[in-house]
Each structure stands twice: as structure tokens, then as C-alpha cells.
Design a protein around this nucleic acid. Structure first.
Lengths: 214, 214, 214, 214
DNA sequence: TATTAAACGAGACGGTACGTCGCGTCTTGGT
DNA sequence: ACCAAGACGCGACGTACCGTCTCGTTTAATA
């Protein structure tokens, strides 16, 4: 992926080639790439991403700094790739026929992964970085948010077709309405994001704020 | 206000004293405090908060670094105070009797202030800082989020008593549900936050996702 | 002294002030200056000036790199000052009335100081640096070569007035003719510079190459 | 020639073979060797030898770094060979019967070549390198200084046999006494080395410093 | 009114990390 | 088999800020 407005590629490291067979002897470049990302996550969990430095990652990984800068233009980009390399077995929606239950299951899984240690603090920090670095924000959207949104919309569309959602529900807003309150809890109030809290949010969103006739 | 877990006070600068009379000659301390915060905002708008340094603020403000460190423990704290010093004429809810309209008006105002230049990028950056600095997160909550939430809940409670809201609506969730989608747009997708978008969100939240009997 | 063509002063460190009384408490700046120069000489003798780095001097001296760069613009300048700080009790000519003997004594002393460990290798390296850095070359001349030349010329002039030198001897060439062969041995052939060698050179220079009538 | 204390040969590049016939098609190795040395001189004249890097030579010459390292162990060695490759049509003494005139002519030629652009600065830098790298110093002596000294001594010996030099003149010192003052001017005072200056030095050396009977 | 303690600007200081450069070695792929 | 190209670990470069710490100099409150 090429980041918009920037020739530097990351996301897929420039020097990596996809290895189609697991027994393919991996090239030097790919080895270093993996080692660096693994070290980034380790060190990040130990000392926090605020104190994480490219210098320290290089030292711990036994890599030269240039080897890191050759691949990623910034600490944020490195963090992004390192985190997303974990998430490649992505968060998929089940379809049991009960959309409310399916959403609940999927969101619980997402919350368990992204809002709890060991990766919660990392993910939080990544969104923090995105506020400064437009490249990171763009890449985060393209590679994580948009795919999730697409899956969510697809599942909701199926539900609407089955009459489980209001036909007037604005599907474009789905991601913001479903995820927004959770990100609010994660980023703004920074209170724990429990399953119970998720359930209450879902109930409220399904019911709506307006009074309903009995 | 004392930040939790830290003896250093900010929010109300330690050296400031409230001046009860406008003609009271302001003390040296308050002058410097104001000049520094003003410079912080100026410089932040010019070069962005990522590149903002206390060193540069001191130089531009004609202040010694010590004078800044005497007041604020970190760049984040300085940014927080600088921003909130603008907001003291706070965002209040009207009460026209029509809760949907009142929310709309108030949220439009908030969005105009916090999601658009010149202060949108600053506010975004402040939330970014909050992901790293727990003190900033706590102060942001105490001094901005909680007061807003309280006002929102108060207005909604009145509406519920008048039958304009579902009696079962979970008021504790109000802030997250109303604000979450907007912060999502501001922080995650980083798309423009228009009045039209706010209206669509509000409509969807009032209606709810579940199908309604005609 | 200001180096020609450069605003940066070294030789006399910018931040130093001469302390007129030995019991004057020395300022912070002068302390660091001395410590850094001392460390430079130590480390230079240990590992050689080729391998000497500003980084290593800073680390060993317990100083920040900036503290060094604030004073000296380059490794060569630092080396120059460090070396010349040793030489301030300079090489002076005796005047016993016998100019040949006086030259011999003074040159033996100079050779012992500058062509033998511990300072010979340092002095050699300094001249090496001077080939690359015009500032170092200029400062070396102004602060070391020219003063020595002046003393030499003064001593020779006295000798000429007493009839101990050929009245036609070109005094302007004195330094080059007396020192040149020694620097040649030091820098080019890099053979040991013994007292015996110095004596042979002096004898030859006094006698001249041309045949003499009996 | 093998450098003392080092198995790596330079001087005669390991991969070069003397081509005995001018129409022999030269091998690939020799082409690269020449191209690299030519580039070294070009680049050295453009940016100065201090800033010259093997990396840059390789890039400019369209050569791999390995190809350079295969031939020369250091930047100094490369510089030495590059410079001496120019000088193979060496500086030889005429013998007109007048030794003073012959020395004058030969030294003028040497000074024109080695103390003036384009090769003066390079030669100066080479001597600078020799202060750090003993190998370079040794090779410079063996391949340039010693041969020149031998020629000089031979010419002077002939002159002495003809009674043009003092029979007591110490021939072993000849090179140091004749060249030393010139190197002093080149390396230490870094003043221009004119023919007129050379002549004055020669006159003084022939005459000697001691007074002469009429 | 004179004294004095605090706040202040200025900036030196020991550090840490930055992003860049060049070293000398090693790997890859092309000719 | 040699080459160009360049990745790699390494180490130093020179810069920027960090947060702490003297410095003298105002400044305004007290004596």
C-alpha cells in the first residue's frame, strides 16, 4: 500500500516479498522486518510507547538504525505495521441469523483484543500518533478502519434485508454509531470497556432515544 | 484543581490569583502566564503541536524556560491550559422545550468550536497527548468532559420528564452515545464534521436501529 | 584570537574568563573547558587521535556533546587547544653568547617535547588535521609557529650583530631552514628524531653546501 | 609492493598485470582500476579529500564498493595509488655540469607539480593521511620519497666529485636539508611556494649560516 | 525609604534521541 | 568468476529539546 501523498511505502514493507510457501527460505530483508516489528511490540509493552525509541528498538533487535529507517518513515509507521501484523487474522462477523447477537459477539471480541492489555495501550497510543501524523491516520483508516466498516455494513445490510433493522437506518453511519461510543470510552474517559458496558450501548442504540409507542 | 497522583497543580496556575476587581493591577505572574499560553496557541497554530517545543514557546514569549516549568509539568499540561483558557465562556444548552432542537443547536456550536480551525487541530492534538499522559487525560476529563456530560444529562433528564425521551433510555450512556460518533469522525476517520453529518447522527440515534412498528 | 575567516573563536574559549586571582572561584564554564581538554589529551594518548571521537571525549569527561560543540567547531580545533594548553610555558631561547650552542639546546628541548611520546604523535596528528582544516592550520600558525619563528629570528639577529652569523644570511628563511629538515624527518620519513641527528643538521646548515676555501 | 605489516598489496594492484604490449587488450580488472583511480582524482579535486568517501567514488565510477575494497585497504591507499599513477613519468635530474643550476631546475619542476593546483592539495592531503595511517606513510616513502632521495644523492655525489660541493657535506642529510624547508612552507605555514622562494632557500643552503672569510 | 526575597530572562549543563552518513562486510542477481 | 548494486551492523556525526541548574536583574512587599 502506498500512503496517500507520500512516496514512502509502508504497510507492505518495500523489501518484503510474499512467500507463497512456508518452506520458502525467507530473504534477509523479510527476516529483519519481522524481527524489528516483534521487538517493537515487545519493547512497547515493556516501557510504553511514549518512551519507545527507534534507537532502542534497533539496539534490542540487533539492527542498525538505518535498517529501520529504510523501511518506515517514523515511529508511528513502525508501530502501525507492527500492530497490524498481529491482526491479519482479522475480526470477522459471524452470521447466525440474529444480528443483535452477532454484533455483540463480534464487538466483544474486538474489545477484548484492542481495549485490553497487552494490545490495548498500544492501540490507544497508535491513535494518539495518528493525531499528529496524517500518514499514520490515513494508513490506519485504510488498513484497519475501512475494512472493519465494510464488514459491519455488509452484516447490517443482510440484517436489514431480513427485517431485523429499521429500513430507514442510515447504514453509512453504522460504524460511527456502533464504534464511536466505544472509542469515546477508550480514548476520552479512559474507563474500562467491559462486555456489560458494550451490551448496554448496543441495547440503547437498538432502542433509540425517542420514546416508542407500546 | 490538583491532578490526581501529582502534587503539581495546573488548570489553575499555582501562581495565579483570581483578580476580583478588573482594575486590580495584575501581578507579574499572571501576565507571564497569559503571555505564555497565548504564545503556545499562536505557535501551535503555526507549526503544529507535534513540532511545538517548550524551548520555542519560551523563546517566542520572551520567557525563561524555568518560568514555564514553574507553572506546568509538561507540554501537554501547557497545551491543555492554553486551550481551556479560551473555552471559559462555555458551551451551554438552551432549553426551548424541544430537546431534539436544543441538542442540535448545542452540538452544532461545539462542533464549530472544536472540530474546525483554528482550534480543531489543537483539540485533536490534545486528545493525542492524553493517550500518553494520564495526567492530561485526567485533567481533560475533569475540566472539560465531565462538565459537558453533566450539562447534557441535565438537559436530557428534563426532556425525559417531559416525555420527549424514552423513559427507558440509559442516561449514563448519554455522553458516550451522543459524542462518541462525533469523536470517531474527528479522531479516527478524520473526515470533516459538518452540521449535516451531526443531524444525520442525531436522527439515527433518536430513531434507533431496531425496526419500529408503524 | 579569532580564526581568520570564521566567527567562531577558539584558542581562547569564548566562555572562559581569565581569573586574576588564584583563589577566585572558577566559573562553571572554565571548569568544563579544562576537564574536556584534559580528557582529550588522555584519550588521545590511549587510543590515538585517528580513533578519537567527540562522542568518546564527552562520555569520558562526563560532559554533554553540546558542551563541546559550544566551544570548538571541530575535533581538530579541540585537539589544537588541548595541546597548546600544555605548551603555555613555552620554549625559550637561552643566550649564552654562543649561538650554535644556544640553538642546539633549544632545538633539543623542542624535539624532546614535540617529537617524542607522549606528545609527539599528538603533534603529528595535529599537523595532519591542519592539511584538511584551514582553520586549524591558521590557528596552529598564529599560536605556535609564528611565536617560535619570532623568537628564533630575534636570537639569530643578536648573533649576527655579534659576528657569529654570516651578515648575508637571510633571516626570513631562518625558521624554514632550521625547522624544515626536522619536520621532514617527523612527518615524511617518520624516522626517530635524535639529538645526534639534530646536531648533524645544524652542523651542515652552518657549514653550507658550497665548498669553502681553507 | 607489499605494505609492511599488511598482507594486502597495493601500489601494484593485485589484479593488475603489467601489459607488455600496448596493443594487448586490457583485462576488465585493469579497466576498473583505472576508472576508479581517475574518479578518485576527479572527485578529490572537486570536493576535497577530506570529504571524499569510498562510497562516493564507487557511485561516481559506477563501481561496486567491493570492487574498490578488493584493491585498496583504505581511502589513503586509494589516494596514494591514484596520485602516484600520475607521477610515473618521474622527476629526473638534468646534469649540465652546474649542480646549483640543475638542482634549481629540478626543484622548480617538483614544486610546480606538487605544490600547486590541481595536485598540490591532493599531495598535501596525502601527507595528512600519512600521519594517521602508517601504511600510507611507509608506501609514500618507498614509492616516492626514497626514489627521489636516491636521485638527489646521486646527482650531489657527482657534483662533489667535481668539486662543486664541500667535500665534508653530509650527503645522507641532503634530502632533508633540501626538501625540508619546502615541505615546511607547504605543510606548516601553507604559504605559496614560488620559484623565487626556492631560489632563496638554495642560495642560503649553499652559502651556509656561518660567516665566511673574504 | 531602604531592604530583601521572590520571580524573572537568559542560557549553560548532562542527557537522550533524532535522522544522516560512511565504514567495511556480505548477499543477490546479472553478464 | 567478476561485477554493480545495495542491504546490513555499527558507530559517529552534528542538532534539537528535555528538565535542572546557576547567574545577575528587576520588582514589589516588608521593615
Amino acid at each position: 500500500m502506498t500512503l496517500p501523498g507520500n512516496d514512502v511505502k509502508y504497510g507492505t514493507c518495500r523489501t518484503d516479498k510474499v512467500s507463497f510457501m512456508s518452506d520458502t527460505p525467507r530473504r534477509r530483508g523479510a527476516d529483519r522486518t519481522e524481527a524489528i516489528m516483534r521487538t517493537t511490540l515487545e519493547l512497547g509493552q515493556e516501557i510504553g510507547y511514549a518512551r519507545l525509541s527507534i534507537e532502542a528498538v534497533a539496539a534490542r533487535a540487533g539492527a542498525g538504525k538505518h535498517t529501520i529507517y529504510r523501511r518506515w518513515p517514523s515511529k508511528g509507521a513502525l508501530l502501525l505495521d507492527s500492530l497490524l501484523s498481529l491482526n491479519e487474522t482479522s475480526l470477522d462477523y459471524p452470521d447466525t441469523g440474529d444480528v443483535a447477537a452477532d454484533l455483540r459477539v463480534q464487538i466483544h471480541a474486538a474489545v477484548d483484543l484492542l481495549a485490553a492489555p497487552p494490545f490495548g495501550p498500544l492501540f490507544q497510543a497508535l491513535i494518539g500518533e495518528a493525531q499528529y501524523e496524517p500518514q499514520v491516520a490515513a494508513a490506519l483508516n485504510e488498513r484497519f478502519i475501512v475494512p472493519q466498516a465494510d464488514k459491519t455494513v455488509a452484516r447490517l445490510k443482510a440484517a436489514r434485508d431480513q427485517g431485523q433493522l429499521s429500513p430507514r437506518f442510515d447504514l453509512e453511519l453504522a460504524m460511527a454509531i456502533l464504534s464511536g461510543p466505544l472509542y469515546f470510552q477508550l480514548l476520552i474517559t479512559q474507563q474500562p470497556l467491559t462486555h456489560e458496558y458494550v451490551d448496554r450501548i448496543l441495547d440503547a442504540l437498538f432502542a433509540g432515544m425517542a420514546p416508542r409507542p407500546q
